[in-house]
């Protein structure tokens, strides 16, 4: 008999979540098959050296509209071990809430000086840093007036660590109504970047976002 694990929650007011969330509880994986569920991402990604600075599309170009911010953090597994040489793929909407993505049909303005996608690799101590333009919020459900709070997407892959998450901002009025934040409940706090002063760098705001990759993905091989 198959044993069951978590029942995934459906994000309130999120149509896609309703359409795509499995209705049956997830099945537990028998020990004899456990190892096969721990993908190991090969370290063979390329990034361009200027991609850490997403506030401009190239080093010799002006900055995009909006507030330039810095995001720094350390990537660890649940045991606290830093994860080095991991790729972090980053994407966020521009100051107006628009993605430079062919499927974003929102009609919000593009910014000719903002690309909105970048990649960085964690250093030997698991640290990462990037600059970007603080994203705009956007109206996700015009019919019911639900906004997506401003957020930055991060996709982490390195060895057996794999996580896609979002960094949110504190005190944003739309946080409380966000379906994914509602699903996280009290745990939403850990997805909020912690502001810090950036007096000596060329950005207006700094956010600390330490990432812990959980589950057996990160720890299975230790």
């Amino acid at each position: 008999m198959t044993k069951f694990g978590r029942q995934l929650g459906i994000g309130p007011t999120d149509n896609t979540s309703d359409q795509r969330t499995p209705r049956k509880p997830l099945r537990l994986i028998p020990n004899a098959a456990r190892e096969s569920f721990v993908p190991v991402v090969p370290a063979r990604y390329a990034t361009r050296t200027h991609e850490w600075d997403m506030t401009r599309i190239a080093p010799d170009r002006p900055r995009g509209d909006g507030t330039p911010i810095e995001v720094t953090g350390t990537l660890r597994n649940e045991n606290g071990t830093p994860i080095r040489d991991a790729l972090i793929e980053i994407w966020n909407a521009n100051h107006h809430g628009r993605y430079r993505h062919v499927e974003d049909a929102s009609g919000l303005p593009l910014d000719e000086n903002f690309f909105g996608m970048g990649r960085v690799v964690t250093d030997e101590n698991g640290n990462y840093r990037f600059w970007t333009i603080s994203p705009g919020a956007y109206l996700a459900r015009p019919d019911i007036g639900r906004w997506r709070p401003k957020h930055i997407h991060l996709s982490v892959s390195g060895g057996s660590a794999r996580l896609i998450t979002q960094m949110y901002f504190s005190n944003e009025p739309n946080n409380a109504s966000d379906p994914m934040a509602l699903l996280m409940g009290d745990r939403f706090e850990s997805n909020i970047g912690k502001p810090y002063e950036t007096l000596d760098v060329d950005v207006d705001e700094g956010y600390r976002f330490d990432i812990v990759v959980g589950g057996r993905n990160a720890t299975f091989f230790e």
Binding site: S17, E89, Y99, I164, R187, S190, N191, G215
Partner: peptide, 19 residues
């Protein structure tokens, strides 16, 4: 002694084709 894991979140509709 485990650290609290960062919540997984949706990739949203716009995972960059660029990647």
């Amino acid at each position: 002694n485990l650290l609290k894991a960062t919540n997984e979140d949706t990739s949203g509709p716009y995972f960059p084709i660029y990647f």
